[in-house]
Computed example of a mutant assay.
Amino acid sequence: MRIARFVHTGSGETPAGVAWGTVEGPSGADRSALTVAAIDGHPFGPIAFTGDRWALEDVRLLSPILPSKVVAIGKNYSDHAKEMGGDAPETPLIFLKPSTSVIGDRDAIRLPPSSSEVHYEGELAAVIKRPARNVSVDDALSYVLGYCAANDVTARDQQRSDGQFTRAKGYDSFCPIGPWIVTGLDASDLRLVTRVNGQVKQDGRTSQMVHDIAHQIAFMSGVMTLLPGDVILTGTPAGVGPIVAGDTVEVEIEGIGVLSNPVVAS
């Protein structure tokens, strides 16, 4: 199931507004062939449909979730750790991105004037479906609602100068996620490709993670309670690099689809 959150223009007696829905149509099909069926309420329980339906091209996709927090892991691919000048840590290196950094598919990444070196980092994101605290590795994946594509946008110059991640990764628009959440997906070995202006920059597989998703969730839940809708960014493969105003960044993940965002100056 592909769960989307979107703005619609209304249907029948349903006023215009924001809703969750499921995307219908063949996987990999052009968006013009897809529809979205509205669900009643939120996607964290049994799914009930309202009967309202729109062509996907007639709605505006939003970020599929508004998390209370985004918990990310750094240097979780060995090749990326090496390109950053070090080795992958034995213990997961985690950091937070604020909820205000989250944007959706086709929303603009806005470059802050205080940074001259902003990088893309294509990643797989996991969305939590129920409260998780001190969960075991064996049970960790049962707390996942589904997966989406993400971009851990980073002001690399500020990451270096600050010696920590908060400012460099916390700007508004620095966490695109989408285009939707895919449930029931085995995310252990998916191809992840990042393109800038159509040129491939990253090409990895989730099986290359140093710490797999279950171990990440178990570790993070031992530090803080993960709430329904919280997003886990699982790390980026090698090939990170700069983006500038006028670029378009695409993160494509096998079984999920393409997250696309233009880059603009603030």
Results as ranks from 00 to 15, higher is better:
Ser27Lys: 05
Ser27Tyr: 03
Ser27Gln: 08
Ser27Ala: 14
Gly28Glu: 02
Gly28Met: 01
Ala29His: 00
Ala29Ile: 02
Ala29Gln: 01
Ala29Gly: 01
Asp30Trp: 01
Asp30Arg: 03
Asp30Ala: 14
Arg31Trp: 09
Arg31Tyr: 06
Arg31Phe: 11
Arg31Thr: 07
Ser32Asn: 09
Ser32Val: 13
Ser32Phe: 07
Ala33Gln: 15
Ala33His: 10
Ala33Ile: 03
Ala33Gly: 08
Leu34Pro: 01
Leu34Asn: 02
Thr35Glu: 04
Val36Met: 01
Val36Glu: 00
Val36Thr: 02
Ala37Cys: 11
Ala37Pro: 05
Ala37Tyr: 04
Ile39Glu: 05
Asp40Glu: 09
Asp40Met: 01
Gly41Ala: 13
Gly41Ser: 12
Gly41Val: 09
Gly41His: 11
His42Phe: 12
His42Asp: 14
His42Gln: 13
Pro43Ala: 08
Pro43Glu: 03
Phe44Cys: 03
Phe44Arg: 00
Phe44Val: 02
Gly45Tyr: 08
Gly45His: 14
Pro46Phe: 04
Pro46Cys: 04
Pro46Asn: 11
Ile47Asp: 00
Ile47Gln: 02
Ile47Met: 05
Ala48Ser: 09
Thr50His: 02
Thr50Ala: 05
Gly51Lys: 09
Gly51Pro: 09
Asp52Leu: 04
Arg53Gln: 13
Arg53Pro: 03
Trp54Gln: 01
Trp54Ile: 06
Ala55Cys: 10
Ala55Gly: 14
Ala55Tyr: 12
Ala55Met: 13
Leu56Arg: 08
Leu56His: 10
Leu56Gln: 10
Glu57Gln: 14
Glu57Thr: 15
Asp58His: 14
Asp58Phe: 11
Asp58Gly: 12
Val59Asn: 06
Val59Arg: 07
